[in-house]
Amino acid sequence: MAEYRINSPISDADAKMLRAGDVVFLSGTIYTARDAAHKRLMELIDAGKELPFDLKGSAIYYVGPSPAPEGRPIGSAGPTTSYRMDSYAPRLHALGSKASIGKGKRNDAVKQALKDHGAVYFGATGGAGALLSMCITAAKVVAFDELGPEAIRKLTVKDFPLLVINDSVGGDLYVKPDLKAVGLE
């Protein structure tokens, strides 16, 4: 397990180099999208319309931030649970997105998409929204403003702390529950 400082948009080489368990401090531009925004993105793709941001090399952060207080670019901004975006993620990776950021398990289709397209799934610490907010230096709504917390925001991050959960070679950091220890297996 290694520690890296990586820039976003993420290069193919960087995404492929990362392994489950690596600690990554991400800097640069990332985009927020959660349930409602993903649905809208799929509709745009289906209709062949232009997307509100360039997917190539993009890192998509599953987050619905709290409102920005006076003098700060954004409110609390920790990850939401990722499985709800599982049905959308493979398509975004196929179109060039190199990473998603969230918390919790991904399904097999997402893990396969990471392998097929040389991408990674990062975990951020759930419930550490105030702490993670401090690594966000700028935020701007770039699409679907009417979705409120679910709008797509362009974030500038500096040393955003992440863990590689799933990598492009099938690695998975999450611990399998010990069912034997409790007599369930």
């Binding site: 709290s66 207080p69 409110g75 609390s76 419930g127 550490a128 105030a130």
Partner: peptide, 21 residues
């Protein structure tokens, strides 16, 4: 460590502990 830093920071900054309030 992160969760402890998070609640200390929330108390100091006035940001909610988690964005999911």
């Amino acid at each position: 460590r992160q969760l402890t830093e998070n609640y200390e920071l929330a108390e100091k900054s006035g940001l909610p502990l988690c964005q999911d309030t």
